[in-house]
């Protein structure tokens, strides 16, 4: 019954080996899907390449549905997994800042690592930027320390907040995602027809 390490079915010594293996799989999938290119990544915002939408959204719905089935089959105890805690206001602010950074930089941390691995200098500079940004955050932390901890709702799930059961969200996200896939395919075709020189 999972999760295996918290339930001590696998000892914690394996933790770091598993971490590397999972990272390898993650990095491989990202790069193989084309996430090692900032132009591919930024494409989702301009309509010429929706790979981000397709991979990301598919992953979310597959994982949501997968977790629910794993719970049903008794393979995974959902009450034992880590739920990202919610700090309402700081997270909204943080995600807005990240959104701007994403469009400006054309990367997010994970994808920048895969791009560095294949020799993209802009990814390296992005990663340097990450370092600087986090450093500045830490140095200026006393200024907004209280704000950082504000809005704490605990490790709440969507169900905790809305009272709607998880399958509704899994199904809802699935429907929206599938609709988005079909619509974006059409948009992409049109946008690409108009931009003659989309070079990979």
């Amino acid at each position: 019954m999972g999760p295996l390490i918290p339930n001590e079915i696998i000892t914690g010594d394996w933790n770091f080996v598993i971490a590397i293996l999972i990272g390898i799989a993650f990095g491989f999938l990202l790069e193989a899907s084309g996430f090692s290119s900032s132009r591919n990544l930024a494409g989702v915002f301009y309509g010429y390449n929706f790979v981000v939408l397709r991979v990301f959204f598919t992953a979310v719905i597959v994982a949501m549905v997968g977790l629910l089935y794993f719970d049903y089959f008794g393979w995974l105890d959902l009450s034992k997994i880590f739920i990202l805690p919610t700090y309402l206001s700081p997270m909204i602010l943080g995600s807005v800042i990240m959104g701007i950074g994403f469009v400006m930089g054309g990367f997010c941390p994970g994808t920048s690592f895969t791009a560095i691995a294949i020799g993209k200098m802009d990814a390296l500079f992005f990663a340097i930027g990450l370092f600087i940004g986090i450093f500045i955050f830490g140095e200026s932390f006393p200024l907004f320390k209280d704000y950082y901890y504000s809005g704490s709702m605990g490790n709440v799930t969507l169900t905790d907040v809305t009272g709607i059961a998880a399958p509704w969200f899994a199904f809802g996200f699935t429907v929206i995602a599938l609709a988005a896939f079909w619509v974006s395919a059409e948009i992409e075709k049109k946008v690409r027809k108009n931009t003659k020189e989309y070079k990979f």
Binding site: L93, G94, S95, V96, I97, M98, G99, I100, G101, F102, V103, M104, G105, G106, F107, C108, P109, S112, F125, F126, A127, I128, G129, L130, F131, I132, G133, I134, I136, F137
Partner: peptide
């Protein structure tokens, strides 16, 4: 962009 992203993250 990286700095903003890092800060926001």
């Amino acid at each position: 962009g990286g700095a903003l992203f890092g800060f926001g993250s």
